[in-house]
Design a protein around this nucleic acid. Sequence first.
DNA 1: CCGTGAAGTAATCAGTCGATTACCACTCCC
DNA 2: GGGAGTGGTAATCGACTGATTACTTCACGG
Lengths: 197, 197
Amino acid sequence: MVSKTDRIPATERREQILEAATRVFGELGYAGATTDRVAKAAGISQPYVVRMFGTKEQLFIEVLERTCTLIIEALDRAVADEASEKPVGPRIGEAYVHLVETERGVLLALMQGFILGHDPNIGPVARRGFLRIYDRMRDVMSADEAMRFMAQGMLINTLIASNLTIRIDEDERVDELFACTFGDKLGLVLEGLNRTA
Amino acid sequence: MVSKTDRIPATERREQILEAATRVFGELGYAGATTDRVAKAAGISQPYVVRMFGTKEQLFIEVLERTCTLIIEALDRAVADEASEKPVGPRIGEAYVHLVETERGVLLALMQGFILGHDPNIGPVARRGFLRIYDRMRDVMSADEAMRFMAQGMLINTLIASNLTIRIDEDERVDELFACTFGDKLGLVLEGLNRTA
DNA sequence: CCGTGAAGTAATCAGTCGATTACCACTCCC
DNA sequence: GGGAGTGGTAATCGACTGATTACTTCACGG
């Protein structure tokens, strides 16, 4: 039934599942997502997902940690970018906006992790992740700037999580809010949305 | 089995359930919460919860709308407060912080609604709620100020949703972040946390 | 060519949860 | 005092879902 090409090394398959799970968890949340939907998104069977990660909870934890790592890496690249002569603040902002258009699932999964702070197993991972990102910001800016950056990030996360993007060009209040939030990077965002849609 | 005093007019009982559901949904999210937990939190049986609101989804929608209304009312009171000679911005900030310490469940439920933007029935309600709050802010401040206020609010929501408060006085980065986020209102927040704990 | 391990699935089980049904208790009014 | 409406529950059902089990297929080394 299964053709030769469907058999893939476990490490590679693992990455595929994590990627699919990021999208599924990002959209539906931890409790709302099912291992079967993750499996279907990854193109494999449900039992294989469970066997590879042990439990749904463990899968989510790995998704969450990978998510934080991806974000930090993206921000690090922006900080280290020698080519740009812009100051570090705008460069980081731009990097975050870039994540919005390319890896929306990552930001959504991050958000889904943050609101599970009460959970005895996932909560600590979420808090560590939050602080990892905050720490990275603190390395290159003041506490006040870092706080504002996080605040702006949480607003952006909320805007895309609530799907307010679908009301752009439809509700002028939404247009205004997006213009204010993304500033001169608004064009990038709109472009990214068109590409996904 | 049920003593006389447990029989309560439906309208009053309805409010009790909404209050309990706000706490439960706020902590566990929509998918993570069960109608049975809401029922237990309200001190009644599970079937009664379902019968009064029709479905779990409808209950959540009513919780979400009530949540937005409560927040807007609190902000309106702050705006209308003639006694204070502070400018409107700080007054609103103070009102929001006050919500953190008195009605944490409300803010958490709001957050839980926002991240359900993909849901065909709940999503529109969440977006309307977000815009209702944003609009209210726009009545009394510039678009840029309103955006910053929303961003700060989303950061505050995330901080309490992720339960980072439990690491106050334990991790100096957390202390710093909270100090920056709440500024001169930090004392109020800490006081409120002690009272709840 | 055989057997061993890796990749993967079908079938199924056990628990959970939202919803439904049928019923009970009390009050008020005629 | 009886029946009609209101406030409420116990029992249960059906669907869903995470996890388990047992099986299949294939590549490869000796």
